[in-house]
Design a protein around this nucleic acid. Structure first.
Lengths: 216, 216
DNA sequence: CTTCCTATTGATCATGCGATCAACAAGCAA
DNA sequence: TTGCTTGTTGATCGCATGATCAATAGGAAG
């Protein structure tokens, strides 16, 4: 009835179309998960034939791996950028925990968790997962090392502590994916834990006892 | 050529056959993941037609959910049983961390991680996941509460701390699924973290500085 | 030995996936 | 206007999944 019925998609520049496809796949991954990235699914969202999506990618595995890297790298860079604005490592680490635990990135967490499983059968994805984990670890390690140098932290093994912090954050966020209720003061408890690990004084990472967390 | 070729599977008691199917599905889940639980895959391992597997289960989603529950509940009970042999909450918590982090249960960890994702599209599985998480949390919470009562721990919120410990363990194990190397003394660092969270003295949970972890 | 219950088969259907490619047509260049 | 490059289509193949069910045959009961 309406005139919005398009028989054929408008012809576009390869780079334009590639960007559209990437964007659509990214949205699908965040909304429905990485495994929902399908030739037909992506094509449908772009408004294009499935063959075209295949035309722009070597194969679906590579597309999934690329989308994962895009989503996660953006998060890493964003948080890393926030760190640079803070003067002391104590504040940086506190903000890091607060930001990662505020529940505003659960969609990204879901992507992480699914990638851990999918990486078992998608070698390209597995490589991306390792790479992005390393990138994250480097960011955290830098904060810890700066803190040691500044005398704010006291621990013998910055790299391992960085891995540990990441693992804890990921696990708690994955948990939140399934269960929100029952856990109060996630941030506060984690802060106590990290203080113990990093050798900082109790209460030095997050000041208040009952902090307010959660989006808005 | 050999006489081992069987045209038709031997006729068995429904309960016997059901047990075989359950066992086969369990093995598949631990070896190849929950998503490898397939009518044909399970049937092939049992040596039976695919229709028979379907005959013994309402649908595959239910089978997957049931197998998840079986695997995870067994782990919970096993660890819970180990706890009862130890006298003090401090020792119990230490053993808990040590056991869960020794890398001998990575196959179960993989099942957990996959269940978190699959639960998104399998409601029966999602319910099982929540149920089993609650069971685990109850075990840990009991240890923490006993510790508080005994004056060994000092924290204001045992339920949340229990959730937190579980989340940390899960996250670190999930990490180990992808990356073993680069992280030394996982158990020691986690012990420090939990000490901080639980309000125990530094070094009270795990004595040595460099503990030996890992399967044999 | 015969009967009969039922465990078991295996073909079948509908669905969805990735991949492939000859054919088509949009739009720029001449 | 004409011609040609190339972005785009959509049908098609092979494969895998879950589910269903009439037909078969094992084996205990009579």
């Amino acid at each position: 009835m309406s005139s919005t019925i398009q028989k054929r998609a408008a012809r576009k520049t390869p780079s334009e179309r590639a960007a559209e496809i990437t964007e659509a796949a990214k949205e699908i991954a965040l909304e429905q998960g990485l495994s929902a990235i399908t030739l037909r699914n992506v094509a449908g969202r772009v408004g294009v034939a499935s063959g075209l999506v295949a035309h722009y990618q070597p194969n679906v595995d590579a597309l999934v791996a690329g989308i994962f890297a895009t989503i996660v790298a953006a998060e890493t860079e964003e948080v890393s950028g926030l760190l640079d604005r803070l003067p002391t490592p104590l504040e940086q680490l506190g903000m890091l925990l607060e930001t990662l635990m505020d529940g505003s990135r659960l969609d990204v967490t879901a992507v992480w968790v699914e990638a851990w499983t999918l990486g078992r059968r998608n070698e390209a994805l597995a490589a991306c997962v390792r790479e992005q984990m390393d990138a994250w670890q480097a960011v955290v390690q830098r904060v810890v090392e700066t803190g040691i140098a500044a005398g704010e932290f006291e621990t013998f093994d910055a790299p391992s502590v960085a891995w540990q912090i990441l693992g804890m954050v990921d696990g708690l966020n994955a948990q939140a994916l399934v269960r929100w209720d029952g856990v109060s003061d996630r941030g506060t408890h984690l802060a106590r834990a990290v203080e113990g690990m990093v050798g900082a004084a109790r209460g030095s990472l997050l000041p208040g006892g009952a902090q307010h967390f959660g989006p808005i």
